[in-house]
Structure formats: structure tokens, C-alpha cells
Design a protein around this nucleic acid. Structure first.
Lengths: 213, 213
DNA sequence: GTCTATATGGCGATAGAC
DNA sequence: GTCTATCGCCATATAGAC
């Protein structure tokens, strides 16, 4: 499945370099060096830097949002859904710490230039996510009416949860600087995050305080 | 005080352009155009792009963290401190929405190259902030011992609060895309954030649930 | 398909007239 | 101090040999 032919090598190298440095910061020479191949081959396979970047970006967007989409598939209670979401999402971020910053910066950048070309590139995946979130509100309404959880706004709940999870990855360098935390200590901090975030988020859903460990 | 001489004009324009596009994305020509002056004057006043950027970055860092530092001056309870912090910080972010992303990206970028040159550039302001946070832990311990609030980790509390506040600004373009929110709707969302965040954060400090509106 | 050599353009930076 | 003209470099991109 994973053929390490030249085309693949280039794509993987480009993904790594673009993820770390973004479009402007990345250099074709570095991508070539990292892949261990000649620079001119980049153009042979992908014509231009922009086309190569577009393909990398599209692939990352799909990978990222498909992952989110899958997490929400299970047919369980709101509390459990959020719990599963946090567990899976943090795991994913630990393995792919650069993805959120890359996506945020790229969208912000393209927002200045073109409009919503991104919608097209990412196909229907964003619509699917949006649908899941709408369904969550329905489920919240239903469980709240049954007295199981508090009535809350689904969008706020999701954005709060994502904020708590993603920000420590996006702003890692800044947080480490401010608090004078070493790499090792930060790793430990992130490992504890799952429980920290669950505690914060679920406390705001639960009617009887203290029932969540 | 605010002389609109050439040097000032350049610095203001550079600040705007660097804030939006970062070091790599910004072009000297654009900074000059934006300031309405000739490109060569940039070099006359600031010698190089890097020197100009460094001055802008240092100024923004100081402005940003001094603001944070001042917010924590007041001699009130933990709950009130957090409340004041949220109110003031969101106000600041509404007026300076690009600052966090700029700082995060710049530090992340410089982390790849040089080490902690930033520490020097920003002088003692980071140490001051760190001190404030340490004092907060002492205050939490004391109030928790008196049964006023729950015993929590100050660092977690601060990072949670900042995550909830900053992420919607850093990731604005992405969130708007995912949720298909218009600029106007997003503005409304941000305006409600103060209360939303207070509710989330303070609920985790209060011993008796339901006492915070 | 893969390499070397080279074209092309953009951008930071400087020289020099005024 | 401010402008025009230009240098020199670096990065993207192409031509052409193998």
C-alpha cells in the first residue's frame, strides 16, 4: 500500500515541511533535501509549489475532519460522546501537533486572498461535520428535557471543548516560554489534559455536581 | 505625543502588515505602500527587514504582556480576579484580534532557529507575569483552605481561561468556515463570550453550584 | 525518470542625485 | 530626508543531456 516511490517521498516531505513552516516559510529546496531527491523532480511531479501545497493542504483537511467526523459516530449519551471526543481528539493531537496551527494559518491566509475556494477543495467533509453538530443540539435538547443534563448551546459546548484541547498545541511555544516549562514538563501537562478538560466541560453539563470523578 | 513623522508612519504600517502576514508573508514594498512612503526609506530608518520586525515584535510583546500584568494588579478575591481578567482580556482581544496569532507564530518560528533570544528582547516582563501566576496559587490555596473555593491548580486555571478566550480569535477563520457563520454572527458570538467563559471557569471554582448566574 | 545547468522574476538592500 | 535607479541574491521554474 505504501509505495515509497519518488512521488510519495516528495508528498510526505512536503507535508512535513509545509506543516512546520507554512507556505511562505517552506522552500522547495528543503522539501527536496528532506526527501533526498533532486529539486527539479518536485516540478516534474507537481508542476508548481502552489499546486503541491494545495494537494498537501487538501489531504490534511480531509484527514483532520474525517477523523473528527468518525469520532462522533457512536450512538451514546451526550456526556459519553464528549468524553470519547476528548479522549480521541487529544490522542490525535499528540500524534499530529502541527495540524491545527497549519490549518488555521492557511485558512487565515487564503481568506485575505481568495474567498472560499477551500469549501470546494474540501468537498463535503465540512458539511458532514456541520450536520453532526446540529444533531448534537437535538440530542442535548432531548436529554435536557429528560432532566439528565443541563440545557446548553451545542455550538458553545463544542467551541469550548475544542478551545481547551487545541490551544495548548497551537500555542505550545508561547506557553512554555511564559511559564518557563521544559519540553518534558509540557509533555506531562498535555498527558493530564484529557482529565482536566473532561472535568471542566462535563461539570458544566452535569446537574448534580460531584458525580464526575 | 503621536507625531506622524515618517519614522512613526513606517512603524505603524509595519506593525499592521507584520501582524496580519508574519515575517515571511510581509513584503517591504507593501509596508511602504501602506505607509504612503518610498520603499528605500524603510532601510534609511530601520536598516533591514529583520531589524524592523524585531522592533515591532518587541513592542507588541511588551504591550501585550504589560496589559496582562496590569489586569492582575487588583487586590481582590480569586473569583473577582478571574472575572476582571476575562472582561479586560476579551475587550483587549476585540481591539487587537491578530496579536495572539502573531505572537504564537513568531515564537514558534524563532524556536526553530535561535533559542530563547526572545527572553532577552522582552526583558523582565515575562518574569513579572510568572510571578503573578505564582502568587495566584498562594491565594487559591489560602481561599481554598478557608472553604471559599475549590482547591485547583493555578496553572491549569490560567491556561484553561486563556484557551477559552484566545482560541476563538486565533482560529476565527477556521471556526467561521466550519460552522458557516457570517462575520456579523461571529461578532455576536464573541460578544457573548465573556459570560460564557465566566460561567465555565467559575463553575469549576465555586463550591456551591448554582450560585453564579 | 533523474540529473545539471540555466532562465526568470521578485525582493531586500544600496548608490547617488536632489 | 526623500526620491529614482540599480545591484545582487535567492527561490521558483524550465531546458536539455543522459
Amino acid at each position: 500500500m505504501e509505495e515509497d516511490n519518488t512521488e510519495e517521498l516528495i508528498f510526505k516531505s512536503a507535508t512535513n515541511v509545509f506543516l512546520e513552516k507554512g507556505f511562505d516559510g517552506a522552500k522547495m529546496q528543503e522539501i527536496a533535501d528532506n526527501a533526498g531527491i533532486n529539486k527539479s523532480l518536485l516540478h516534474y511531479y507537481y508542476r508548481s509549489k502552489e499546486k503541491l501545497f494545495d494537494m498537501v493542504f487538501t489531504q490534511i483537511m480531509n484527514q483532520f475532519f474525517n477523523r473528527i467526523d468518525i469520532i462522533w459516530e457512536s450512538d451514546v449519551s451526550v456526556i459519553e460522546k464528549i468524553s470519547i471526543f476528548i479522549d480521541n481528539y487529544i490522542d490525535f493531537l499528540m500524534k499530529n501537533p502541527f495540524i491545527p496551527r497549519f490549518i488555521i494559518n492557511t485558512i487565515a491566509r487564503s481568506h485575505q486572498n481568495a474567498g472560499s475556494v477551500i469549501q470546494q477543495k474540501t468537498g463535503g467533509i465540512l458539511d458532514k461535520i456541520r450536520n453532526k453538530f446540529l444533531k448534537l443540539q437535538t440530542q442535548i435538547d432531548s436529554e435536557a428535557a429528560a432532566g439528565k443534563i443541563k440545557q446548553v448551546d451545542a455550538q458553545d459546548l463544542i467551541i469550548n471543548t475544542i478551545s481547551l484541547m487545541v490551544f495548548p498545541f497551537v500555542a505550545e511555544s508561547m506557553i512554555k516560554l511564559i511559564f518557563a516549562i521544559s519540553d518534558k514538563e509540557y509533555k506531562n501537562f498535555l498527558l493530564k489534559r484529557k482529565e482536566t478538560i473532561k472535568s471542566v466541560v462535563l461539570n458544566n453539563l452535569l446537574i448534580n455536581e460531584g458525580t464526575v470523578k
